[in-house]
Amino acid sequence: MTVSIIRFGGSNCDRDAERALAHLDIDADIVWHEDGLPAETTGIVLPGGFSYGDYLRAGAMAARSPIMADVREAAADGTPVLGVCNGAQVGCESGLTDGAFTTNESARFQCEHVYLRVERDDTLWTAAYDEGDVIEIPIAHGEGRYEISEERLAELEDDDRVLFRYCDEDGEPSAEANPNGSKHNVAGILGDRETVAVLMPHPERATLPAVGPTDGQGILRGLESTDSSH
């Protein structure tokens, strides 16, 4: 099995993701977007960074690059897809997930550790946790405010598609613990299939023991439990 980490011009967390996955013994290759998605791909990471310099809107250009048609097709077939930070913005812009990640309420780039409450423990991405667990993972973004109509968000919540919410140390999703003004403290959501997830925080930066908390490991482990038919 090989996970494909899609590198766009301006991606800068692709090597972090590769190193973090290697630490977890998950085989992964960085794939240049113009080279297309390798047939042996068993999982996909859309990494963080500033693809296409965030021109127009963060993620807008990468979402419309040809490889994303392959990614959407693989996602529809059940291949796990994880979008992190800029990858989450690409995921929303490409229609893999609902909503949009836009300018932080502070109008500033924010780089800090945050707490997330695990909203479900029955997905690939959260099998390592229990529902209600509080995990510590860094964020680093200027456009991470989750925006969506109240009606659509209510539908997503009814469908149990919210995966993580920003919370305080005790697991309370308070306004104070919301770093960017995201609606209902949403930090990560699932796509139409639960094998597709996007989140603004960086699990690959919370995986190697040498660099701090390792609470992100469980999320990346979602890429190892792949369907053998792919």
């Binding site: 127009l56 809107r57 807008a60 419309r64 929303c92 812009e93 609902d98 909503g99 949009a100 836009t102 925006e147 969506i148 109509s149």
Partner: peptide, 9 residues
């Protein structure tokens, strides 16, 4: 529709 605007926002 396809690029310049994001219909969500």
């Amino acid at each position: 529709e396809r690029l310049l605007a994001n219909p969500t926002i």
